[in-house]
Design a protein around this nucleic acid. Structure first.
Lengths: 337, 337
DNA sequence: CTGTTAGCGCCTTCAA
DNA sequence: TTGAAGGCGCTAACAG
């Protein structure tokens, strides 16, 4: 892996390294013909400026880093595409790392990315992240960083988030308006801020319509299909059967639906169901699942633009952008006449 | 973003930079007590060796790069998890980039990754990649690189692939054995090698059982749901209705199923369906979809191990690993008694 | 316009 | 055991 260096090009042409540098950086304090000659010969020799060396002597890399907890669910990939769409256009490269929902891995991710001198970071916190010191110190040093989706209120940084409270309120209110009363809430990872906000939305809707919530109406699950199955099966086994459920995510909702049907119950007649963070699956299941669309692509774009602003104007005032969704009502939650 | 440098640590302690360097690289040509002192004070000062500088003077980064065409479908994310599982264990960091199925972006990805001096590359080619020169020159220079899933036969490099021929053969044969004869093949991106191999598998099965294929039995589609819809609808509109279809991917199969049902036809009685590259969806659709499991995680692990071998032993002999799958037969393809 | 030189932060001989 | 010095490849003053 031997690279042609600036020196070799210089020697070959009997010019100085700085001339070569100037030529390749397209500057104008160099005669046009020499520039062209250098460019031509340099390329022939297969010369590419070594970005590492460039980084070391400059302070800018035109790389930015993105850290997400996982990307098996479509949510994060879609956000990342939004991020890329704005950065690629501006000739930034986007490096992605996956924390696997582990705090330790996340920390290492941050460090290698920062160590690689990315110009800024976009991150969605891992489920496990408890210690925020490293992020805080980065932020204090003025390092450009924006959070999305999973953030923490103690972090004094820009973030783009979804109004989980409001949309879970709407989802719950929708079920109530359909005439359901005994509505349960299946919540994924309750310690996450977004889950807490969704619970608040659920509670708010219930209290608005004066429906008293029993403590066991809020059920903790994870993020996956099987966990929806298990939660639902448990309710059925205990003969504690709701008229409706609002779920913190589509997979859990779909798992619950599967279990409801397996037990001979009907959707929505016996139990109405809503999901959250709409995935393409909602149209494929039977009946089609009511869910809340999150503007994933937009979330990525917005985060990217916030970061860009920080990088380019280094404006240090953190901004928070709250994105809106859409409640997509489908058969899984509509009371039949 | 001011970093503490080796110099500052040295000055503070009145030692030389090389001593600090030695301490932080845990070498033994330094007295134990001084090493410990340096480490202690250095950490207190918040000193981290700057990886960029390190890279420049050493030749190893303990970073590896992965380039995939997309990761909205679960396939690539799952492979990446396999890759990470082997590298994280060995303290390598994995940087991921997405080519968006674009050759240009892919090329830039390779260049920034290589420019960041990753120790090696794992790549799955974009749909558009036609020009292989850059890859070839990297390979010629002995740069460690392994391909998976989407590769090109002109590339003299290690690769881990799936036996598309064999498993599409099995899928097709399975339909034939169920008693279907007029079997069509919906193929995604026919110019991709893997699609060609699947077509070969389909043809081989048909010819083995002496079923003559009409030219219009092989239909080109893309990768997504809607393309499955469209292809199926077209067949129905033309009243060219197959008894069975083998699809190049699950999404297309599911789209086709949706359209079949919408048109009042039944699966598998009227049309039997098989998918490929099994996704979690297969269990969710009605009827459950027969598909071929690809060992995604294993594919990632295998690719990672091949790369590691190249990096550490720099053995230049390219290896090809062909992975096996499983045909998971479900209701979508079983003739009812 | 061109070339010389001093860094960027770190590692690695090589003397002392 | 220590430290001085050169080098990794490039850029950015600064003279000429």
């Amino acid at each position: 892996m031997k690279h042609v260096t600036i020196k070799e090009v210089a020697k070959k042409l009997n010019v100085s390294v700085s001339s070569v540098s100037k030529a390749f950086n397209d500057r104008n304090d160099i005669k046009k013909e020499t520039k062209e000659l250098i460019l031509k010969v340099g390329k022939e020799m297969g010369y590419h400026p070594n970005p590492i060396a460039k980084k070391l002597s400059q302070q800018k890399t035109f790389n930015i880093g993105v850290i997400v907890p996982e990307f098996v669910n479509a949510f994060f990939p879609e956000v990342i595409i939004g991020i890329q769409d704005v950065f690629l256009k501006r000739d930034y490269q986007v490096l992605i790392m996956q924390s696997n929902e582990s705090y330790e891995t996340e920390l290492k991710n941050v460090q290698t990315l920062e160590g690689n001198m990315v110009d800024g970071l976009i991150v969605s916190l891992s489920r496990e992240t408890h210690n925020l010191e490293y992020f805080k110190s980065l932020i204090n040093q003025g390092y450009p960083i924006v959070f999305f989706n999973r953030y923490n209120e103690d972090l004094h940084a820009s973030k783009v988030i979804f109004d989980d409270f409001k949309w879970m309120f709407f989802a719950t209110e929708h079920l109530i308006k359909q005439g359901f009363e005994k509505i349960f809430h299946l919540s994924a990872y309750q310690h996450l801020l977004l889950a807490k906000n969704r619970i608040r939305g659920y509670k708010k809707a219930m209290s608005k319509y004066k429906i008293e919530i029993e403590p066991d109406w809020i059920v903790e699950t994870g993020l996956f299909l099987e966990e929806g199955d298990a939660a639902m099966q448990k309710l059925i086994d205990e003969n504690n059967i709701p008229e409706g459920i609002t779920c913190g995510n589509d997979m859990v909702a779909i798992g619950a639906m599967r279990t409801i049907k397996r037990n001979g119950l009907h959707i929505p007649e016996d139990i109405a169901v809503t999901g959250f963070t709409e995935t393409p699956l909602v149209e494929l299941v039977d009946p089609p699942l009511t869910s809340v669309i999150q503007p994933t692509h937009d979330m990525g774009e917005t985060a990217a633009k916030l970061l860009l602003k920080q990088i380019e104007n280094d404006s240090p005032i953190p901004e928070t952008v709250i994105l809106n969704g859409i409640l997509n009502v489908r058969a899984s939650s509509m009371k039949k006449e």
